[in-house]
Nucleic acid binder design. Structure first.
Lengths: 126, 126
DNA sequence: TACACATTCAACCTTTTGGTTGACAATTAC
DNA sequence: GTAATTGTCAACCAAAAGGTTGAATGTGTA
């Protein structure tokens, strides 16, 4: 089950790593759209857009519903919640660790030299 | 600046899409580690592990600090916060849209057929 | 100084990714 | 029925990703 979960995350993060796909997700966050509508802002071929949407669908980030000769696409919020939860997990780990170290250093003297200099002040997120 | 931000996200999501790299991040969430320590659970070569860590570093998910002949690696929580914030952005868009639709349908009668059946009960996140 | 250790670099290989084009299937419109 | 529209498939291509091995670099240690 862990392996399975891992594969799901592979797909989700991989899908999110492409700017065109993220743009499509933003569009879908604003409004459900057909594939042609999603393709409109891009210069790439329809086939390329179709492939991107298949990637998003396999990653369970979107759901495609056939309506006549169109597909209506919408976000699948559950997957976003799962992926987001993983990242918050990392944040939690981190802050927990920092808290316990802080507790440690207010009770004892450190023996190793400045083991967390600059922690959390390292904000160059260009 | 948006393009720049986009490139940062490309790197972050791309870095997170590999299970070995996520495992390394989990290890770092538990404990700062050297590159050899991070390599230990894996069967791949040191060079491969080194490459993975370079990917994580370029994505600003970790920070590498030279200590003698070792590198001490730690998480960079800022980037996690940024990436996590983006995902919550999607969730927010989604729930906002749902809320407004809900408001809409409690006030008026829908004209289009069941436009959000199964929304948010679609939990097959295998 | 010589050696061992930790990490990276360079060259190479295979698989995956992101794009193209052209043909095709399904659906709607004339 | 025929033609246009929507989307996918198949075959192909170039570039990137992920791995290998072996040499090179930098640092501690005897």
């Amino acid at each position: 089950m862990v392996d399975h979960q891992s594969a799901v995350l592979d797909l989700a993060f991989g899908a999110l790593s492409d700017p065109a796909r993220r743009a499509m997700l933003f569009q879908l966050a604003k409004k459900e759209s057909t594939i042609s509508e999603l393709a409109e802002p891009f210069e790439m071929s329809m086939a390329a857009v179709s492939k991107h949407l298949i990637v998003l669908e396999r990653a369970r980030l979107i759901i495609k519903l056939k309506e006549g000769r169109n597909f209506r696409c919408r976000l699948n919020p559950d997957t976003f919640q799962n992926v987001s939860a993983l990242l918050q997990h990392f944040e939690t780990f981190w802050t927990t660790r920092l808290d316990s170290l802080e507790t440690y250093f207010t009770k004892k003297n450190p023996t190793r030299g400045e083991p967390h200099e600059n922690a959390r002040t390292n904000n160059n997120v260009n």
